[in-house]
């Protein structure tokens, strides 16, 4: 195993750095199934298990459900994003 991510260069941000920086922030969590969860990130662990607050579930961009608290099992997670999303239709 070669840990390429832990180089000391100033402009790098490893997954561990990212995880530390996003607690308490609004996030979008996308699952492999394509479902999006938007809410406030309470905490997460090394498996990418996630606890979220004020969670909204979007299927095909449509709001389907709301959860006060939600635990998302990490193996379903495609990505965790800090951004507000902008959608556009491609060709």
């Amino acid at each position: 195993m070669s840990g390429g991510g832990d180089i000391g260069s100033t402009n790098t941000k490893t997954p561990a750095d990212f995880l530390k920086s996003i607690r308490g922030r609004p996030v979008v969590v996308k699952l492999n199934s394509g479902v999006d969860y938007r809410g406030i990130l309470a905490c997460l662990d090394g498996y990418m298990n996630i606890a979220m607050e004020q969670t909204e579930e979007y299927v095909n961009g449509q709001l389907k459900n709301k959860y006060g608290d939600a635990f998302i099992r990490g193996n379903n997670v495609l990505y965790i994003s800090t951004s507000k999303m902008t959608l556009a239709d491609g060709a």
């Binding site: 459900n65 709301k66 193996n75």
Partner: peptide
Amino acid sequence: RGDGVILVSPPLRTA
């Protein structure tokens, strides 16, 4: 079985 789980939430607060 845990591997089938996607999400867990206390249900009373679901809309």
